[in-house]
Write a protein that binds this DNA or RNA. Structure first.
Lengths: 220, 220
DNA sequence: ACCTGAACACCGTTCAAGT
DNA sequence: ACCTGAACACCGTTCAAGT
């Protein structure tokens, strides 16, 4: 009963790239990132580890494909309604975080794939585009988008690490607190949005100040 | 000539925890994080890998000690001069990044040690304290400090990853650009400060707005 | 107190060879 | 086109035993 075929894998069908990503994503969510090994993926697929190297040149590239799949839902169009630009930007950041929260250890995985340049930061581009269309100067828009992206990844990475530590019951004396000082996971979302709010506010004030100094426009 | 003792390690002296951290830090800076293995550290010390487990219970704890050493210079007192609070906060963030830039792959290492809760985020506490002493409400100060910390780690992680990729000559078609759209490493520092500026500005405006709405104070 | 020696249960990757 | 089988050069960790 320990055989590979007994693990739910079809015994002798051709595997596609997508199948490999499926298998890796399943292990990631059930066992966590350290268990996403080439050998475990192969085992789930009922295949030899070396078979994976026909589909992907190496493990990093495979993990980048997994990252792309995790982030796919964030590629939704920015919904060109005329809602306030700031709400749009905060909304994109929020959807970005939701994508990461959908799978265990996803923030850590995406963070390193992105740092390695193996995945395109679509959320970052989206935020910059929205800001630019809301008349934010392009360099400022790009800095804000980059700041938000790094913040979301860092915050969610830390958040998921706490979730796992808490579920293991360990963590001992280290306080598992939310940045504002509150206690548990419900306020993690509130604190997340507060951080995003700071950055968006900083961006808004920057552009307003620049306009005042630049064009001496409507001053009531 | 491949013997352990020939590698510059004293043959038969007792090793301290600090010696182990020294060895790990040296490998980190010269070879990078993937090469910081228990076996390589032991080799540099002229010792069996199992010997390390007398000094540290496991690899994660050892790496946390390395993280502490990397961050030690950032523990400098906030220099209680009466300089504008915002300059102080940006300065702490800047010194934090300088600590990370001092060793290869340091941001990645510290990021995961910190997420695992094995290292105390001293920079974050310092920023929150400085903000609170500058009359920023405590919850806002803590959110801002957390936002800045995550931003610094994420930004520097990405920055160091680019540095290594560039030095390897690889990276191919992926553009190695700074968030604002500029080309190379000199403007990485400028862009970093711009991001910090956004967050600090957002915090300042938040507290100013709250004061206006709360106490209806001096309005000229 | 500090370390050795040997083992256990793993890794990612390569490569000739099969179908 | 897709995969096997076998090997290579590694990992972190444990544990009895030495000094």
């Amino acid at each position: 009963m320990g055989s590979a075929e007994a693990n739910g894998a079809r015994p002798s069908a051709r595997r596609s790239k997508a199948d490999v990503v499926d298998a890796a994503l399943g292990i990631l969510d059930r066992q966590g990132l350290p268990d996403v090994t080439m050998r475990r993926i192969a085992e789930v697929l009922g295949v030899q580890p070396s078979a994976l190297y026909w589909h992907f040149p190496n493990k990093q590239t495979l993990l980048a494909a997994v990252s792309d799949r995790i982030l796919a839902p964030s590629g939704l169009l920015p919904s060109d309604d005329i809602a306030p630009r700031t709400a749009n930007i905060a909304g994109i950041a929020s959807r970005f975080r939701d994508c990461l929260l959908a799978y265990r250890d996803a923030a850590e995985l995406v963070s390193s794939s992105l740092a390695l340049g193996l995945v395109t930061p679509s959320a970052q581009h989206l935020i910059a585009d929205v800001a630019i269309r809301a008349d934010v100067p392009a360099p400022l828009a790009r800095v804000a988008a980059s700041t938000i992206t790094h913040y979301v990844l860092g915050y969610t990475f830390h958040e998921q690490q706490r979730m796992q530590a808490d579920s293991l019951g360990a963590l001992a004396d280290v306080e598992s607190l939310t940045p504002s000082g509150a206690a548990v996971g419900a306020s993690a979302t509130t604190d997340f949005h507060a951080g995003i709010g700071l950055i968006v506010l900083g961006m808004s004030v920057s552009v307003a100040g620049a306009q005042d100094r630049g064009t001496r426009k409507t001053r009531r």
